[in-house]
Design a protein around this nucleic acid. Structure first.
Length: 319
DNA sequence: GCCAGTCAAGTCCCG
DNA sequence: CGGGACTTGACTGGC
């Protein structure tokens, strides 16, 4: 089984390359000349996308083939006071450069929109804002020339004091979401509310690939045994053009169990991988560690020293 | 040039 | 029911 590691949004090794520079609405409002303020937003967005390209080059140079793009590339893109702003138009060229680069250096990229994107709300305004944010992600993907299928990982949403009802609300709302948005989505079990089984219920019912988060599962489950659910998780990827992916991170400490540690415990990853050997030919593991790409490199070094067959700086084989 | 505080969003928790 | 915590990285303001 081939394992490919990825990391999240920014590098601790590449300096001054943040793809998430921002401007708050308070700052925006202080600028008297609205056009000038919008130009400033556009410069920030352009700089974010340029930094994104630098990160992709850094990845390709380090043999990393899996990467989560920042969801904060365009500050205030969906702010209600900026509905007249065509934020994509000035970014066409820089987005295309990303696409061109990815054509030469194939890499799996996706997004994880902020947890404020909630699809199971009963509040129309919240749902409409969530969908607006997803439309922005779609426009970014299109601008980059990337097939939009299964590129946005989301959580199920709020529990609203009745998880069963909250799950049914998700199904209800799903029916109102355009197919083009639906097909971008993957769902992940979260660390406080919706467990693997509950997330699977939606994924199976609605045909959504499920991203298994091992750390979240340890923090939030009915049954700590996950092995019997693994085949179901794999099956949710049956119709996807992309290999199964999962999230891996380690608890910062027993007291701060849900917080992400700086690095990933190799034992934890190997425990997971050894359990699923033979179920898929290839799996992509997204490392969610504070030390970002440095955590990925350290993990690979550790695996190498254990005699695991390492293919390059981010891939290896378990058998 | 560092540290503390602020900013966004929606949910959840506490009083 | 209202205010604060939670989370994340970036940024601002005070010294």
């Amino acid at each position: 089984m081939i394992v490919k590691l990825g990391y999240v949004a920014m590098s601790v090794e590449l300096q001054n390359a943040s793809p998430s520079q921002t401007m708050t609405f308070a700052q925006f409002s202080k600028i008297k000349d609205r056009d000038a303020a919008i130009r400033k937003l556009e410069r920030i967005a352009e700089s974010n996308i340029d930094n994104c390209l630098r990160l992709l080059k850094h990845n390709a140079g380090n043999q990393i083939h899996f990467f989560r793009l920042s969801s904060r590339l365009i500050p205030l893109a969906n702010h209600e006071e900026l509905l007249d702003w065509d934020y994509i138009k000035p970014l066409k060229e820089s987005l295309k450069r990303i696409g061109d680069y990815l054509n030469l250096h194939p890499m799996r990229v996706d997004f994880h929109p902020d947890h404020f994107v909630v699809l199971n709300t009963t509040n129309k305004e919240i749902l409409s804002n969530a969908l607006k944010t997803l439309v922005m992600h779609k426009k970014l993907l299109k601008g980059m020339g990337i097939d939009t299928e299964h590129r946005c990982v989301l959580h199920v949403g709020g529990g609203y004091e009745d998880k069963e009802m909250a799950l049914e609300q998700f199904i209800h709302n799903w029916g109102f979401i355009q197919p083009a948005i639906q097909k971008m989505i993957m769902l992940e079990n979260d660390d406080t509310t919706f467990t693997v089984k509950e997330t699977l219920y939606l994924c199976e019912k609605l045909g959504i690939p499920m991203v298994f988060d091992y750390h979240h599962h340890l923090a939030n489950h009915e049954d700590v045994e996950w092995q019997q659910d693994w085949e179901r998780i794999v099956t949710t990827w049956r119709d996807s053009p992309l290999p199964v992916k999962m999230h891996i991170s380690s608890p910062r400490s027993q007291n701060e169990f849900r917080a992400h540690a700086d690095f990933v415990d190799p034992e934890m990853l190997l425990t997971f991988l050894n359990t699923i050997i033979g179920t898929v030919p290839e799996i992509h593991c997204m490392i969610e560690a504070k030390q970002k790409d440095a955590a990925l490199f350290q993990l690979i070094d550790d695996l190498k020293s254990r005699g695991i067959k390492v293919l390059d700086q981010s891939s290896f084989v378990v058998e």
